[in-house]
């Protein structure tokens, strides 16, 4: 019996180890595949033509700048919507709301997280875009703004649930101590609880932003997909084309191994690198500011 138990232990240990390392393995494989499919584009297309302000692949215009700027504009907009709202909601749920409201709010946020993005996109087309057009007197509501608002809505649940967990993990003694010293509830939240939970809150924002930049279906449906290069703030109110929507809309049409095919993978690499940069920046910011006391706590 003892022997079989040992064998069982060994088997389960091995399986858990394999699943752990498999994440690294899969990321490696995906990265290798992206590079092998995307880098040939640099041989087939001049670097200068990748900087062309026009994206029109069927006539061999492969300018990536409008797509990159489109993605950045929509993601920036979504961040401005999702981070304040997400963290605000998390603070409300974790710190302010009475117990019954908390029990009610959490499942609702989870339902929001479970909404298929195509449903949000459809709502964007039939409801949000006409409202935006009439309200702001725009030529069309299918714009970066509509994309930002919907992506914000998609990113909020991610931010709320992660940030709320982080706030929850702050020891009760911190709050009690602050309140005992005469701080108001808001002062306690702003100067004690939130800074103590900073790493978790930042992680939440990062996950939210990453969710927004990678989202495809909704932006493809509501941003109008016009590859216009962003050159002023007005671009928020006009149609844009994102990298993800471009890959999704065009990948089906390309013949394997064509220039267009490789350029689409190159866009994938750019997207990957941008996500990586966001990740690294925020981790670096976190690492720099982590004090010894917080390290001990976490």
């Amino acid at each position: 019996m003892k022997k079989s138990l040992l064998a069982q232990e060994f088997l389960i240990n091995t399986i858990i180890k394999i699943s752990g390392y498999s994440a690294i393995f899969f990321v490696g494989i995906i990265f290798y595949f992206l590079l092998s499919q995307g880098l040939p584009a640099l041989n087939q297309v001049d670097f200068s033509s990748l900087l062309n302000p026009r994206w029109y692949p069927i006539e061999e215009y492969y300018g990536l700048l409008p797509l990159i700027s489109g993605s950045l504009v929509v993601t920036l907009g979504a961040t401005m919507v999702a981070v304040p709202f997400g963290i605000g909601t998390a603070i409300f749920i974790a710190e302010v709301a009475p117990r019954w409201a908390r029990e009610l709010l959490k499942p609702f946020v989870e339902i929001l997280a479970g909404l298929p993005s195509v449903v949000l996109g459809f709502l964007g087309i039939v409801a949000l875009s006409p409202i935006l057009r009439n309200l702001l007197n725009l030529p069309t509501g299918l714009s970066a703004l509509a994309g930002s608002l919907l992506l914000g809505a998609i990113a909020i649940p991610t931010i709320v649930s992660v940030a709320e967990d982080a706030l929850d993990a702050v020891p009760k003694e911190y709050r009690d101590g602050a309140l005992a010293l005469g701080a108001t509830e808001w002062q306690t939240i702003w100067t004690i609880t939130l800074p103590a939970a900073r790493s978790g809150v930042l992680t939440a924002s990062m996950l939210g932003i990453a969710r927004a930049i990678g989202e495809t279906m909704t932006v493809m449906m509501v941003t109008g997909n016009a590859p216009v290069l962003a050159n002023s703030l007005r671009v928020f109110f006009s149609p844009v084309r994102t990298m993800t929507a471009t890959i999704a809309a065009e990948m089906g049409e390309v013949a394997n191994g064509s220039t267009h095919y490789h350029v689409l993978f190159l866009i994938g690499i750019v997207l990957f690198v941008i996500s990586l940069v966001i990740n690294i920046t925020i981790s670096a910011a976190l690492f720099q500011h982590t004090k010894r006391s917080e390290k001990l706590l976490s």
């Binding site: 299918l142 997909n225 016009a226 590859p227 216009v228």
Partner: peptide
């Protein structure tokens, strides 16, 4: 070598075009 104006909206479906045209007078 004429091309579409860059601000032409490229919609992924026929239905998307009908929907937007029916709503938007521009």
């Amino acid at each position: 070598k004429l091309l579409f104006s860059t601000d032409t909206l490229l919609l992924p479906s026929s239905e998307g075009i009908i929907k937007e045209v029916s709503q938007n007078p521009n």
